[in-house]
């Protein structure tokens, strides 16, 4: 059986008065977790609304679980579990009532799993939403999305504002989803730490554009910070993927998103001795990507003045 992509966006555009999503393409395969990372206001929520069929694109194609959005949103949404940081449950109603409401709609609601989640998330079903803490509200919303075991989970900033314990509880449950090979998760965050460990694919978005989308291992593999020692008269050569460099006396550092033997060889040919090649965290990579896409990569060269 050919497996259709869980989410597929091709050249999607959507403009507002003061903001535009330009040429968004992304693909999430079944069985994968995609971390969707961007600064606040980068277009994460708008993209997610497009995926949910709540906002119509000006142009481009959107398919979710094989259904064209927004036309076939009803069919698609049977298979989607959605939760968002700015989604509230009904204040006056209890969590129990919400669970009953979902159960009345979804035949695939798993009562036992819902009970387990109540325990694991440390929630009290008889409590009204208005008396709950922020963390409890967020976890309640996630519980409603998770307990039906939907084929696709679309989560907009699910871990924002959660304390470390609650965040771990939530991330653990997201991993649990992947026991089943057909299920996928798209989750947005401005916090790379949440995304780094559990994501298979990472998509960076900034100012309404996708600046990079790759599997996580390639990201971590390609990016390196290189520390090197130079001799007098050293001139930094053109290096592939270099986003930032600093020279301070005879010591230098540079960041590259395309590390490999070419970088090593060119540096050595220019007379530099490589002292260390450091891995970078996803957060550092993210900042470097954003900076270089904005064309504001910082470079300082104090060598000239000191000589």
């Amino acid at each position: 059986m050919m497996s259709t992509a869980a989410i597929e966006l091709n050249n999607v555009n959507k403009s507002y008065r003061y903001f535009a999503l330009s040429d968004i393409s992304l693909q999430l395969e079944p069985g994968h977790i995609m971390g969707f990372i961007g600064p606040n206001g980068a277009g994460k929520s708008t993209t997610i609304r497009l995926i949910m069929g709540l906002v119509h694109a000006d142009s481009g194609d959107i398919r979710v679980l094989g259904h064209a959005m927004p036309v076939e949103q009803v069919a698609a949404k049977w298979g989607i579990g959605f939760a968002s940081e700015d989604m509230n449950l009904y204040k006056a109603a209890t969590l129990e009532w919400h669970m009953g409401f979902m159960q009345s709609i979804y035949a695939d609601w798993d009562k036992d799993y819902a009970r387990q989640l109540v325990d694991r998330f440390d929630l009290r079903p008889e409590q009204r939403m208005k008396g709950m803490s922020h963390g409890q509200k967020v976890k309640s919303g996630l519980l409603l999305a998770l307990a039906r075991r939907p084929r696709l989970l679309v989560l907009d900033e699910p871990t924002t504002g959660l304390d470390p314990v609650a965040r771990t509880e939530v991330l653990n449950e997201l991993m649990e989803v992947l026991v089943d090979e057909d299920r996928s998760v798209l989750f947005s965050s401005h916090n790379t730490n949440d995304v780094e460990q559990i994501s298979d694919k990472i998509t960076f978005i900034d100012r309404g554009r996708i600046i990079e989308a790759q599997d996580k291992e390639s990201f971590l593999d390609r990016w390196r910070r290189v520390r090197f020692e130079t001799s007098a008269g050293f001139v930094l050569p053109e290096l592939p993927g270099m986003t930032e460099h600093r020279l301070d006396g005879s010591l230098g550092t540079l960041t590259t998103g395309n590390f490999g033997t070419e970088v090593r060889e060119k540096l050595q040919a220019a007379g530099a001795t490589i002292l260390a090649v450091d891995n970078m965290t996803l957060e550092e990579i993210f900042v470097a990507e954003v900076m270089s896409s904005r064309g504001t990569a910082s470079s300082s060269d104090s060598t000239g003045e000191s000589r």
Binding site: Q73, A75, K77, G81, F82, D86, M87, L89, I105
Partner: peptide, 17 residues
């Protein structure tokens, strides 16, 4: 105003429904 619309619209319905 209470931001519960996102929950309702995540259900399998259209805006018209």
């Amino acid at each position: 105003s209470q931001k519960t619309l996102a929950l309702v619209m995540s259900l399998p319905i259209t805006a018209v429904q």
